[in-house]
Design a protein around this nucleic acid. Structure first.
Lengths: 153, 153
DNA sequence: TGGTGCATGTCAGTAGTCTGACATAGACTC
DNA sequence: GAGTCTATGTCAGACTACTGACATGCACCA
């Protein structure tokens, strides 16, 4: 019913389009990562660690857009599975740096293959200049939204 | 620690920027709707019903980017609170059209005030032409991502 | 020296969403 | 007419992420 209602006014809303694209990206990534038994936050954490070794749990949480409590439980799982390690003697103040293990790097490498394909598909119809413009616009939007809401995550 | 690690390579990834902007929008909307005791999906459902009266639960789920199971439990709450109604005699096949009540419309009106402000803030630094370009780009990205993954939700 | 503020790590409880499964209604085919 | 496919509604269980709360460590300042 109401096939026409799929696109009336909402399709002209940038906020709705943003949520739509984000949802499509999330679905595609979940689908790509599921065969590997990995969630998006799981993957994001490994990717962040590859680019910034020694990041703390709170930093990883901010980078993956979850709370530090959520990242905490994820890190427990990753540590149990031997993908990351955080030796207590490395502690800097209260922060405890996290590092990838060989196993974690292998896990990330496998996931990267699947994820790269999703991102390639997403960018399929966009030229380089357009990608840059959209990137800039998204950054400005993010900054404006956070200006009035300085949340920790 | 590692303040520099906040922006190395990931800031040049459109996928990451998309997730970042979406996360910022979600946070801002949650913050705006919380005083009203309303979640984003809650609001989305009401907004969809205002624009397309008589939508089915499955249609609402697709429009709000959740599963029809999630929308089902939400509709139970909304119906219990008297925000929506779906008289069994209106059933078209198995689909059961949902409609806003006066109470639901009032609830939506209050939420709209808060949400409009968030969207205004988000678009603050973007010109009209740029908004249109970004909107088009997001739609193309969404379509490309779904091309290979025709999921129901 | 003590106090204030802020960030981090951690524990506990809650809430929203998801996957899996089943039954039903309509459309289409043979 | 029977069979198949698709869409919808619904129930049940599991999971992920969240909010709230507390303790610790460091920086700053009076």
């Amino acid at each position: 019913m109401h096939q026409a209602s799929d696109g009336i006014h909402l399709d002209s809303s940038l906020g709705y389009a943003l949520k739509e694209a984000s949802s499509a990206l999330r679905s595609a990534m979940e689908e790509a990562l599921r065969p590997l038994g990995m969630t998006i936050t799981h993957y994001s954490c490994l990717e962040l660690l590859a680019q910034g070794p020694g990041m703390s749990g709170s930093e990883l949480a901010r980078g993956a857009f979850v709370t530090r409590q959520s990242m905490h439980v994820l890190l427990q799982t990753l540590e149990r599975d031997g993908a990351v390690e955080r030796p207590p003697e490395d502690a800097v103040g209260k922060a405890l740096p996290v590092r990838l293990t060989a196993r974690g790097r292998a896990s990330l490498a496998a996931a990267t293959v699947a994820v790269r394909d999703v991102e390639r598909r997403m960018l399929d119809g966009l030229g380089d200049a357009e990608q840059q413009r959209v990137l800039d616009a998204l950054h400005r939007m993010t900054r404006s939204l956070r200006a009035d809401a300085p949340r920790g995550a």
